[in-house]
Amino acid sequence: MHEGARTDVGPLSRSLKVGAFYNPHLGAELVRAEGIDHLAMADPPAPNDPHWPAIKARYTLLLHDYLGQLSEPLDERSIQRARSLAEQYRTPWVAEHFQCLHTEDGRYNINYVFPPLYTEEFLRRFAANAKALQARLDQPLVMENIPGFFDVKASQMPEPEWLRRFFDATEVGFLLDLPHVWLEAHYRRQQPRAWLAEFPLERVVELHVAGVEVDEDLQGPWIAPSEPSDEMLDFMAHAVAQCPQARAVTFDAFSPSLRAEVLFRSVERIRQAL
């Protein structure tokens, strides 16, 4: 059991829960599945999704949609959308990412998670906008770390320090994506456990675990909708032991190419490793 006192993260229950993402193409299998405590929702359910009513009735649902990038304040339309989804899912917390993926004028959009520069200016922006969003939500906000494949020389501090200062300033929860930490350690040529130790683990509410695979373009490993390796599961067990407030571990795979057996086996192996 992992209980903490500093962040009120709602009623998911006291034990560490193990879940996955809702992949609509696996809806029929997920309706019948055993051993999955919760489902994270990356997209709203399609209006014609035949499995959605049963999914909603059966599972604890975690709001994990794209709400907006917190380098800018969310507009009223985005806030109302977030509130509406949170109410629809009855989510115990609302997740967003430390990302800045489109330009301020909307002209360029890379359509993929990408971290902000780790600078004082971005720290002020994210802290102010996260607090403003938190004030408009009825659930706690949690924020997920995003990996960088390359360093941008304009950054002023290491990512863990930036994150620690963000969480100290906002008191929001930390959604720790472990493959993201593992990948950064890999590309920084550091030991994953040593790199992980730099992060504010006492703030962690939820952990993401997934597989990594070699990508041809990157010429190295990257996030993939595949089973976590034994090494990643060991890393997860180590991390969970350092996260006293952790409430849930989620198999982080959301892709039309994800196969049911991969999802179910991954959840089972995560549970066994904890």
Binding site: S71, C100, E104, N109, I110, F114, L117, E120, E121
Partner: peptide
């Protein structure tokens, strides 16, 4: 810094 971030995003796009 926001403008610098936009430059990086443009370079990637």
């Amino acid at each position: 810094d926001r403008a610098l971030q936009d430059l990086v995003l443009r370079a990637l796009s």
